[in-house]
Design a protein around this nucleic acid. Structure first.
Length: 277
DNA sequence: ACGCCCACCTGGAGGC
DNA sequence: TGCCTCCAGGTGGGCG
């Protein structure tokens, strides 16, 4: 579920809530996450202070002052929560950090993930650049490298539908099923159009639409359709701003014709046949 | 090499 | 109440 805007929202509130705090103890569940996580790996962080939090596409990085970092991904249902000490932990809590702030203020950080498609790894900070999952990513859509020219080059010759190309994290990284549908609607491009057949003017629209829908999502603190909540447990407000995703049979906000749904690569795509060519 | 499909999981919603 | 089917925001391995 979480795409770039949701992960960005989590990163921002983690900066408020855990940067500067010390990890005094760690716990984990006995369930395996995407890439596994041993207690001995978690214990690398005990006694360390969290110095900064970064977002790379849909990955979250939490750096500690002892040379180790957390490399995490929320998958479909991952949540990161920071709660007062003593509060009951939700089912499917897989990682716990006991935190100590100034004046010995205590609290807990939880990584919760019912479906366990998420990842929570502890990595040496200086080796983060060697990690395959980060190396495989194209540029972040808010980075300087994400230019119209870059997108033109990346899409050239692609025989895949534009929907699939935008979902491909190797081309550029951070979009998912919701924001791809929204960007295609805003750009007026059919999800079925082959990426390699787009004209330059269309790619320009897609480039602008990508940043626009992601910015809207961040401004609204994310889209909460079923599971997503921020670090305080609050839902995001972006669902009300979605123009096509999840709106099958509802009237198109631009032309009034019903929004259609189709399946591409096993995922639902929502679009307006009249407005997207 | 590239593009597609499915497995990986749990839980909620809706039909009967 | 229960049981069954379908669906869900992501990723990557394996197949043709």
């Amino acid at each position: 579920m979480p795409e770039l805007p949701e992960v960005e929202t989590v990163a921002r509130s983690l900066r408020d809530k855990i940067v500067g705090k010390r990890i005094v103890a760690t716990e984990r569940s006995d369930k395996t996450l995407r890439r596994g996580l041993k207690q001995s790996e978690l214990d690398r962080l005990v006694g360390a202070r969290i110095t900064s939090v970064e977002r790379h596409a849909k990955f979250l990085l939490m750096h500690a002052d002892n040379g180790w970092s957390v490399l995490a991904h929320l998958g479909m249902t991952g949540q990161m929560l920071v709660r007062p000490d003593g509060e009951e932990r939700p089912k499917h809590t897989h990682v716990v950090f006991a935190l100590e702030g100034p004046k010995r203020q205590r609290g807990e950080f939880w990584f919760v993930d019912p479906r366990r498609f998420g990842q929570f790894s502890v990595v040496e900070t200086k080796r983060l650049g060697e990690r395959d999952e980060l190396r495989a990513l194209g540029p972040d859509p808010f980075s300087d490298g994400f230019t119209v020219e870059f997108l033109v080059e990346q899409l050239r010759g692609k025989q895949t539908p534009t929907k699939s190309a935008l979902m491909d994290q190797k081309i550029f990284a951070g979009m998912g099923n919701i924001y791809v549908a929204e960007a295609l609607f805003v750009a007026g491009i059919s999800p079925k159009r082959l990426a390699g057949k787009l004209k330059r003017a269309e790619i320009e629209k897609l480039h602008a639409a990508t940043r626009a829908v992601l910015t809207l999502g961040i401004d609204n603190r994310g889209t909460s359709i079923s599971d997503y909540v921020d670090v305080n447990g609050n839902v995001g407000e972006n669902e009300a701003f979605l123009q096509v995703y999840g709106r099958e049979d509802e009237p198109c906000s631009r032309c009034g014709k019903p929004i259609l749904r189709l399946t591409q690569a096993g995922r639902s795509t929502f679009y307006c046949k009249a407005c997207q060519k």
